[in-house]
Write a protein that binds this DNA or RNA. Sequence first.
DNA 1: ACTTACGGTAAGTCATGGCTTACAACTCTG
DNA 2: CAGAGTTGTAAGCCATGACTTACCGTAAGT
Lengths: 114, 114
Amino acid sequence: MAYNSVAFAALADPTRRAVFERLADGPRAVGDLAEGLPVSRPAVSQHLKVLKDAGLVTDRAEGARRVYQIDPQGLGAMRAWLDRFWTTALDDFAAEVERQAREQKPDDGKDSHK
Amino acid sequence: MAYNSVAFAALADPTRRAVFERLADGPRAVGDLAEGLPVSRPAVSQHLKVLKDAGLVTDRAEGARRVYQIDPQGLGAMRAWLDRFWTTALDDFAAEVERQAREQKPDDGKDSHK
DNA sequence: ACTTACGGTAAGTCATGGCTTACAACTCTG
DNA sequence: CAGAGTTGTAAGCCATGACTTACCGTAAGT
C-alpha cells in the first residue's frame, strides 16, 4: 500500500532505471549487472537495495553470488496508482477539447447545420 | 517518447504527488491548490512547472488565474513503460516459485540426480 | 490610473542522495 | 586452510533540488 510512494522515487533515478531495464531480460547477479554500466559495482549494489525496499525486485542467494529479478508487487502497485488518474485524465481532456471548441464558435445555438 | 524519463522524477516528490492527486478531483487554479498544502505558493508554482514539463499536466489562462489539469499524455507514457515489464515480471515470478518448489522436494522426477 | 488579486521568476539556503574508495563478511575452489 | 571471487556496508565528497522571501508582470475591479 505504501509501496508506490517509494517506488516512484526508486525509478526516478536514470541509473536505477537502467539497472531495472537490464533485469527485464531475466534474473541476473550484481557483478553481471554492474559491467556495462557507467558506475561502480558498489553503486549498483546500493541501487538494488533501493529497488528492493521499493518492492520492485527480489533477491536470492545462489552460491557466493546474489541473483536479482523483477518483482511484480511494486510494479502492480504503481500500475494501480496510475490507473486511479487515468479515467479522470481522459475525462478532463475531453472536457477541455469541448471547452475550446465552444470558445472557437460562440455563435452556436443548439443545432449546427452544415 | 522521452516523457517517462522525467515523469517518474516528477512523481518522485511527495509534495508534487500531493499536488497531482488534488488535480484528480478536477481542474484547479494555483492558489487554490496551494492552500491546504504545507508549502508556499511559489513552491507549488515550481512543482507545477515540473509536472508540466513532464507532460503530466496542462495549463490554461482563465482571466488573471491559471487553471491546471491532468494531462493523459505523460500518464499514458508511464503506463506504457510499466507494461513493458509487467509480463516479464510475472513470468520471472512464476519461474521463481517453480524453482523454490523444486528446491523443497529434490526427489522430483525432473532433475533428481546431482 | 490606482489598487488589489494572481502567479511566474530570481536568488540564496540547506537537506537529500548518488558516487567513489576502502573494508568486512561470506562462499567456493585448490 | 589459503586464496580468489562476489557482494554488502561505512565514510566522505559533491551535485541536485526543494523550499523560502522578494520582486515583477499581468489582469480585473473601483
